[in-house]
Write a protein that binds this DNA or RNA. Sequence first.
DNA 1: AAGACTACCAACCGCTATCCT
DNA 2: CAGGATAGCGGTTGGTAGTCT
Length: 299
Amino acid sequence: MGRPPCCEKGGVKKGPWTPEEDLVLVSYVQDHGPGNWRAVPTNTGLMRCSKSCRLRWTNHLRPGIKCGNFSDQEEKLIIHLQALLGNRWAAIASYMPERTDNDIKNYWNTHLKKKFTRTGAAGAEARSGRWAAPRGQWERRLQTDIHTARQALREALSLDPAPLSTKPPEQLPQPTAPASQATSYASSAENIARLLEGWWSMHPGAAGKVSSGSRSSSVSVSVFSDDDGVISASNSGGTAAARTPEASIRMTKADGEGTAGPGPGPSFSMLESWLLDDAMGHGDTGLVTVPMGDPCDFF
DNA sequence: AAGACTACCAACCGCTATCCT
DNA sequence: CAGGATAGCGGTTGGTAGTCT
């Protein structure tokens, strides 16, 4: 059923987000939690469509997001998961809670895809369309159902964190595994620090002298959190490092992400055990030769 | 030094799934 | 149950910085 794009109405701003807009969005989400995105533009006064707000939050402002280069482990995991799941970036991202689907997708398109097309051997099955080609909806549903079923089972049985795998739990990346509260909290501070760098570079008078670069600012921004869960930020790169009220954001530790994933680690399916065994290090370059048999073998 | 080219990534667009009335 | 509204996903595009010629 067709419907007009959400951004069709006039007066909607497009293009890169400004640090001010980020601040508005972050503080709003901290107050109200993620979700109900259609209310965000009206409640915040942001001239952005709800979709854009959601995307900005999930891809850049959300707590727990890791920026920067992908590690070898992450790269291998992506390769492995892509071979297994195809271009289902959201599903892949669920195994890498610190990365966004957009991030993974970009990394795949810019780094890994060309690597594969060059080597020729890797991901042959994926490219052949056996797995990576657009899969039927039943498969998409199936993938979702596996996770849902496992989560439901775990909840029903109230499983303790001890996984069936022989690996220690901390080595097991898990689908939609939330970062620990502390980690998530710290990461959100990092995210805010990043956006504040930009803010300060655009408002040098707000807190002392800053020098700004294009993509990477030389400004060093510190973000503090006190016992009350209040995050405040200051730029320490300038000569007048100071906490600035206008840049101080209130965040409560209880807030976190509303879409927190499952709790303690789930038991690993055969599929996941296979997947992670290789991806987590004691596999080698044989990673890409996915031992993919008949899909029915997994179920 | 300047223009062309390439790489990267943020953001947008269109579609489907799901929710709600 | 039907149909509209919203959320989420994947593909694609556009802008910018870096590199090459």
